[in-house]
């Protein structure tokens, strides 16, 4: 059992605040992804959990034990680094065996675990090589095998795929998901790649400016962003936002059209680009750029002077300069508070 509880963890580097009082619970065997742009504090949070960084305030609990005063070796964790950190002076075998030898396991057990994890990561033919003789992808496999061989309660991964080329990343992503699910460890995975986050995570914690903005299931994060930032960060292309003006009996004026909206003083209208279809009545969009992508067409347009993007079926020909009317799917419309930037339920 390795539930991770983070209570009010904050971190200052001099005058710069990297983390503002973060609270987060990661369940046993959960795959949690920390997602955010660079500088949002996601790596700092991971390093605090690993014990490579000390929090300025707050507590870290792993498996019911408070660990924030313990060194990394006493926390029952294993970590995979962005640049792999495979020891160059040791063979692949000795790299994977490194932690096991530190734990003083008997030789037979070391060999058994190294062989098993090497087979799992498909590197059994590389065991005698040195890291200088390996490709980036192979080094990545060694780094993951080294972490898995420890049979830790928690595996921490710091952008493990970001140094791989696109094709390899796709392959490793699927493989990692399978291997980690089978290993039944709790995983915390840091990335800035939203596709990676969506495809791997049980839950995603979206981070911005040292705060966790939303921690929820990938589809929830996508469909019901808790804040304007989440909508504008997740999704490619991201959510569209339009200013709205309150009208009569709960109706809102958006770009000359009326929509049913929440009963508040001020709100901003938001819709995902794929949640619209061309119709007789709807938002009038002046088309600027048309990008046919095969299954659908990406249209960049202007609505009421605001940039606006739509992903449409590719069966209809659209040309720049044309004015099309787009009808948003009513239950996909979201509203945000322009003051607090938070979602209005």
């Amino acid at each position: 059992m390795a539930e991770i509880v983070i209570k009010g963890v904050a971190k200052q580097f001099g005058a710069f605040t990297a983390l503002h009082s973060v609270d987060l619970t990661i369940h046993d065997q959960e795959f949690m992804v920390l997602l955010g742009a660079s500088g949002c504090g996601k790596t700092t949070l991971l390093r605090i959990i690993a014990g490579l960084e000390t929090p300025s305030q707050g507590e870290v609990w792993i498996g019911g034990r408070r660990v924030d005063h313990l060194p990394p070796r006493a926390r029952g964790i294993a970590m995979v680094f962005q640049n792999y950190a495979v020891f160059p002076h040791l063979t692949v075998f000795e790299n994977i065996a490194f932690g096991l030898r530190m734990a003083k396991l008997p030789q037979a057990e070391v060999t058994r675990r190294v062989t098993r994890t090497a087979e799992l990561m498909h590197i059994e033919q590389l065991l005698k090589r040195y890291s200088g003789e390996l490709s980036g992808g192979q080094r990545q496999r060694v780094a993951v095998a080294r972490a898995l061989a420890m049979e830790p309660d928690v595996i921490l991964m710091d952008e493990p795929l970001s140094n791989l080329d696109a094709l390899l990343r796709l392959e490793m992503r699927a493989e990692l998901k399978g291997v980690l699910a089978a290993s039944k460890t709790t995983t915390i995975y840091v990335t800035h790649d939203q596709v990676e986050a969506m495809s791997l995570a049980d839950r995603i914690s979206v981070m911005n400016g040292g705060f966790i903005v939303q921690a929820d299931k990938p589809t929830q994060v996508y469909r019901n962003p808790a804040a304007r930032f989440v909508g504008s960060f997740i999704g490619n292309p991201p959510m569209n936002f339009l200013p709205a003006k309150r009208g009569e009996n709960g109706r809102w004026h958006v770009a000359g059209k009326d929509f049913d909206g929440p009963d508040v003083a001020a709100a901003e209208f938001a819709i995902r680009p794929e949640d619209m279809h061309p119709a007789k009545a709807g938002l009038e969009a002046e088309v600027r750029v048309v990008e046919p992508l095969g299954p659908h067409t990406l249209v960049t347009a202007q609505v009421a002077g605001q940039p606006f993007r739509a992903v449409l079926e590719s069966d209809r020909a659209i040309s720049p300069g044309e004015v099309i009317t787009l009808a948003p799917i009513p239950d996909r419309i979201r509203w945000f508070d322009p003051e607090t930037q938070e979602a209005i339920a």
């Binding site: 014990g51 490579l52 060194p71 990394p72 020891f87 921490l156």
Partner: peptide, 8 residues
């Protein structure tokens, strides 16, 4: 750091 996390 990797060595620390591996028990050093």
């Amino acid at each position: 750091e990797a060595a620390w996390t591996l028990g050093c």
